[in-house]
Simulated scan of single mutants.
Amino acid sequence: MNRRTKIVAVAAAVLLTLGAGGIAAASVDEAPAPAAARAAVSEAAALTGTAKLYRPAGDDITFTFDAHLAEKDRQDPMKATGTFRFSHYKGDWGGYAKVKVDCLTTGGKVAVVSGVVVETDVKEFKKARVGVTVHDDANGDRLGYTWMTADPKKDKVPPCISGAPFEKVKEGTGDFKVVPWEFVYPTE
């Protein structure tokens, strides 16, 4: 082999070795973090899932949640993100709403989420803030909402406010999951 060919071959071998080393280093850096590190980047609170409400008259009422509070925002539930949707239909009557989350608090298996309606076909709900409470219970999920007692057209609902979870979820439809929020109290 002539000198020029040897230099090219050695250079290629060095580049391949460095490239493989770089890939190996990148792979080590991208390996799953230990459990303690994963816990440090977990959510501070969350409410997810879908359920239909129980109504003996046959109404089709569905709630779906995808609300989250990032760990970095643990102390400020008004930095929650996500959406929730609800719909109520019976025969040819009904409507739906999509809500942009503006607050999420949870305690144990209970969550309160509020937000502003960003999409709807019900004029009373346009741009209204609404709140929903969910109780994630193994014996049957329950749900409550602000428009039971507040008129979305004229009553101003504050963030993080809703009614008690008085509605029963239709058996076999509830898959709510509440990640409990833990407020960190100042020590000084």
Rank of each mutant, 00 (worst) to 15 (best):
K168F: 03
V157Q: 04
L18M: 14
D155T: 07
V99M: 02
G172P: 10
D121E: 05
L104M: 08
V130G: 08
D136H: 06
R38L: 12
P165H: 08
K52C: 01
L15V: 14
A9C: 01
K52E: 11
A39I: 01
V118G: 14
P34G: 11
A11K: 02
K123S: 13
V112P: 05
G49E: 07
L15Y: 02
F65R: 05
A13P: 06
V130M: 12
P158I: 02
A37S: 09
G91V: 04
W147S: 10
L69G: 05
D137G: 11
T5F: 04
S162M: 04
L16Q: 00
F125E: 06
G172C: 10
A46N: 06
G58Q: 10
T105A: 14
P165T: 05
D76V: 11
T83F: 15
A12K: 05
Y96S: 13
Q75S: 12
K153Q: 10
K154T: 13
A31K: 11
V10E: 00
A44S: 15
D29A: 15
K123C: 00
C103L: 02
V132R: 05
F84M: 04
L16T: 02
R55K: 11
N139L: 14
D175E: 13
A35M: 04
A36Y: 04
I61F: 10
F166E: 09
D59K: 12
K154H: 11
A45E: 01
A35Q: 10
R4E: 00
C160K: 13
A111C: 03
T133Q: 09
V110M: 11
L16W: 00
P180E: 01
T105G: 12
T17G: 13
D102W: 08
G131R: 02
T120M: 02
V179W: 07
A13N: 01
S42Y: 00
E43C: 00
Y96Q: 06
V112L: 02
K153N: 04
G22E: 09
T133F: 12
A51G: 08
P32Q: 14
R38T: 10
V28H: 15
W93T: 11
W147D: 07
F125Y: 15
T149P: 04
R74W: 14
A164H: 07
R129N: 10
E30M: 11
E71T: 11
K98R: 10
A13Y: 03
K90M: 13
D59T: 12
M148D: 12
E171T: 13
P34F: 00
D151L: 06
T5A: 03
G91D: 09
K79S: 10
V101D: 01
G144E: 05
M78F: 11
S27T: 09
L16S: 03
V122G: 05
I23T: 08
D66C: 03
V101L: 07
S114F: 10
T120N: 05
V157H: 05
L15R: 01
F166D: 11
K177A: 11
M148Y: 15
A138W: 08
G95T: 04
A26I: 07
V99R: 05
T48H: 09
V134A: 06
F84I: 05
V117I: 01
I61E: 09
G108K: 09
T83H: 14
G163M: 03
D29L: 14
K156T: 14
L47K: 05
G95D: 03
K154P: 00
P152I: 03
A20M: 13
L69Y: 04
V184H: 12
S114E: 04
S87K: 09
A97K: 07
K79Y: 06
V179C: 05
G95Y: 08
V41F: 00
